[in-house]
């Protein structure tokens, strides 16, 4: 379980996060929803200790992050995390070099699934393919948690479908996933839990399934209710 507890974060004088708390469970897809600039990426960065927080605490399986945590959790940001001059093969080799949890079999599977070319240079890839490489490098790690920052933004329709297919596959099964998005449409049917962010706080945290079953509302319906107020 990833626990985010009363996290506050300032950029200069501007408070971006004003005490954000939520949890994300293993085996569930948790979606952070909010408009651009609300601090979704900052939360993911903070979970990965890529940016300091001013207050609060983040626990992963009850422990604070240390170097071994990176074998348990991975982050797929919306930027490429490899050197542009590297080929896909080199990037995979790099991951294999440093991560004991790298799963070469899974990587090969993903490579075929996304129809990527080992010898292609990352810099030469289209935006959609770059995102796929990012996804490949993250998902080929045998980790318990995967964080994804806007995996669908700015990507063509076909790529989007391919990526969405990943979520229903065994590649995601049993993992805890936190995904951020500002448009929930594509993945509404995939997500288990929704965390609505607005103005630096969590405005609502609810189970998508419960909302559907008990109240007969879609995620978008709930969002409408919350934001109208």
């Amino acid at each position: 379980m990833i626990e985010v507890k009363a996290v506050e974060k300032k950029f200069g004088r501007k408070k971006i996060l004003k005490g954000v708390s939520f949890t994300a469970n293993k085996g569930e897809i948790t979606c952070l929803i909010g408009i651009n600039g609300v601090g979704k990426t900052t939360i993911l960065n903070a979970i990965m200790a890529l940016t300091p927080i001013n207050k609060g605490q983040i626990l992963i399986d009850g422990k604070r992050l240390d170097k071994t945590t990176f074998e348990k959790i991975t982050f797929i940001p919306d930027v490429i995390t490899m050197l542009p001059q590297m080929t896909i093969a080199e990037a995979m080799e790099f991951m294999n070099d440093f991560y004991t949890c790298w799963n070469q079999e899974r990587a090969t599977e993903l490579l075929e699934f996304f129809r990527l070319n080992l010898s292609d240079r990352i810099a030469s890839l289209s935006k959609g393919n770059t995102a796929k490489v990012n996804l490949l490098l993250g998902l080929a790690l045998d980790v318990d948690y995967v964080l994804m920052d806007e995996p669908f933004s700015g990507i063509d329709m076909f790529s989007r479908e391919e990526i969405a297919n990943v979520f229903t596959s065994h590649l995601i099964e049993n993992r805890g996933v936190i995904i951020t998005t500002h448009e929930v449409g594509d993945i509404e049917h995939l997500i288990d839990k929704v965390v609505l962010l607005d103005d630096g706080i969590v405005t609502k945290e609810f189970s998508a399934e419960e909302a559907r079953e008990n109240e007969g509302k879609s995620v978008i319906d709930v969002m409408r209710e919350v934001y109208k107020r």
Binding site: M48, A49, L50, K67, T68, T69, F70, E71, T74, F75, P77, V79, T81, M82, L83, F94, F98, Y99, T100
Partner: peptide
Amino acid sequence: FIYRLLMLP
């Protein structure tokens, strides 16, 4: 690349 460097185990 700093993302990757900082996320190395």
